[in-house]
Amino acid sequence: MTEASLDQLGPVDYAVVEFPAGKSNFTGEMVSELLALVDAGTIRVIDILLLTKDADGEVEAMELSDVGELGELQALEAQLAELLAEEDVVHLAAAMEPGSTAGVLIWENLWAARFASAARRSGGQLIANGRIPIQAIIASIEADEALATEGV
C-alpha cells in the first residue's frame, strides 16, 4: 500500500458473531444487510472467516471460498484480503463457546476515512477511540436518576 492510499485508509474494525449450537437461522438477511453497506460505500469488507469450536474446544477455520454456494457473496469474496493470520484465529476463537459456530468479519469504515484523513492533515492524531455499550449508557442514566431522587 502506498503512503497516499494508507493516508486514506479508514478505521478497520472486526466483529465475531457467534451462533450457539442449534440456534442458527440463516435466511440470507445478514448477507443482504452486509452487501447493502458495501454497495452504499459505508464499509469495505477486508476479510471473512467462518469458525467452529467443537465440544472439546477444538477450533476449525474455514475460508469463505470453501462455502459451497456463495450466491451474492461471490463478488465480495473475490475482493477479500487475507488480513487475518492463523494466530488471529486462535485469539478470536477464545471468545467462542464450545459447540458453537461463528463468523468473523473485518471491515474498513469507509465513512470515516475522509474525516480521519482531514484530521491528520490538520495535525491531529488519534489518541483514543472505542465503543460505548448501551448498558453503560443505561447505568449512567440510572445513576443520574438516583442522584436526582436523592436531591444531590
Binding site: V17, E63, E86, A94, A95, Q135
Partner: peptide, 28 residues
C-alpha cells in the same frame, strides 16, 4: 484448520485472546 497458506506463520493483527462480549451477544 484448512486455512490458506498465506495466513500461516504470519504475525496476527488481533494481538491477544478475545473475551466474550455479552452486550454483542444480546444485541443479535
Amino acid at each position: 484448520m484448512p486455512l490458506r497458506a498465506a495466513r500461516v506463520g504470519r504475525v496476527g493483527v488481533i494481538g491477544h485472546p478475545v473475551a466474550k462480549t455479552a452486550v454483542v451477544a444480546k444485541a443479535v
